[in-house]
């Protein structure tokens, strides 16, 4: 993170409100102490996030006195884009991928820090820590800069940018152990509570607001659930769990038989879907 602050003109921290973002924010506070992190937080708000996430975001930014930029694709909102009406692929493209590109262009960011990890998905395993993007935000997996030792090359020309992933070598377990060790606040949705959910296409979807249309025969029921990963509520499946504290989550993870992105609807679209989304500029 210090490399980013030192090498770039106008960096930004992508703050998605999830556990990885919480760790990133914590690391930023530590890296620059006693200064404040010398960059803003950017949240790309698809307008379909869990209500708890938004409340948590605003509280944290306020407590820490950091500048928070909330980016919404207004054009998408005008067109009424949403996961129920347009499907997960269109929704993700318009409200997340396009929206992020708009923000980077509008504010002229030359580096965006993100919390992605190599253990999440196969195409992420080859992502560099400093990942170069062309002026139209494309990722070219065949033409990446070699990354040797801990020497990071952040030089870019006008219009080009770099996505930086300091947590590349962390695993999901590392994240939780670090959250435990450092006592880092995270969104309450990660902890098990009774929540109203419906079972749909094999995933447990939480009824977070009245925009969720129920299919015939679907009746929300209260179940003890938590989330391993957070995104847009209609696209994020919960897992049944009684883990109410960080140590209980760690214990549950050690016994887990499914990977964390399993609940994510977008990864399952087609075999290489994440790689294609990334080439187009998805984070």
């Amino acid at each position: 993170m210090r490399e980013v602050a030192a090498q770039f003109r106008n960096p930004v921290l992508l703050y998605s409100i999830g556990k990885d973002s919480s760790v990133m924010l914590h690391l930023a506070l530590k890296a620059f102490y006693p200064s404040k992190p010398p960059f803003s937080l950017l949240h790309v708000d698809s307008t379909w996030k869990f209500q708890d996430m938004i409340a948590f975001r605003d509280r944290r930014a306020g407590e820490l006195g950091l500048n928070l930029i909330v980016q919404v694709n207004e054009e998408g909102v005008r067109q009424g884009i949403g996961p129920f009406t347009h499907g997960s692929a269109v929704h993700t493209d318009i409200m997340k991928t396009q929206s992020l590109k708009q923000a980077i262009d509008r504010y002229g960011f030359d580096a965006a820090l993100g919390g992605a990890r190599r253990d999440e998905e196969k195409s992420r395993a080859k992502e560099r820590i400093f990942s170069f993007r062309s002026p139209n935000h494309r990722w070219d997996p065949k033409n990446q800069r070699p990354e040797l030792w801990n020497l990071y090359n952040g030089r870019v020309s006008q219009g080009e940018s770099v996505r930086v992933f300091p947590l590349s070598n962390w695993t999901e377990l590392d994240i939780w152990q670090y959250i435990d060790q450092e006592n880092i606040p995270v969104v309450p949705l990660y902890f098990a509570r009774p929540r109203p959910v419906v079972e749909r296409d094999g995933a447990l979807i939480m009824v977070d607001d009245e925009r969720m249309p129920l299919r015939p025969g679907e009746l929300p029921e209260m179940r003890w659930v938590r989330f391993r990963t957070l995104g847009c509520y209609p696209l994020t499946g919960a897992v049944e769990s009684r883990a109410e504290t960080v140590p209980e989550i760690i214990q549950e993870m050690r016994l887990a038989r499914t990977s964390e992105r399993q609940g994510r609807v977008i990864d399952h679209d087609a075999g290489s879907s994440m790689e294609i989304k990334k080439q187009e500029g998805y984070f």
Binding site: V23, L27, A31, N150, P166, N169, Q177, Y178, E182
Partner: peptide, 21 residues
């Protein structure tokens, strides 16, 4: 990149959390 923790037990892997290093 920032090392995540102060650490007195191992060196050489500053980009990882302490318990992993």
């Amino acid at each position: 990149m920032a090392g995540p923790t102060r650490d007195h037990s191992a060196g050489g892997q500053p980009d990882l959390p302490r318990h992993t290093r």
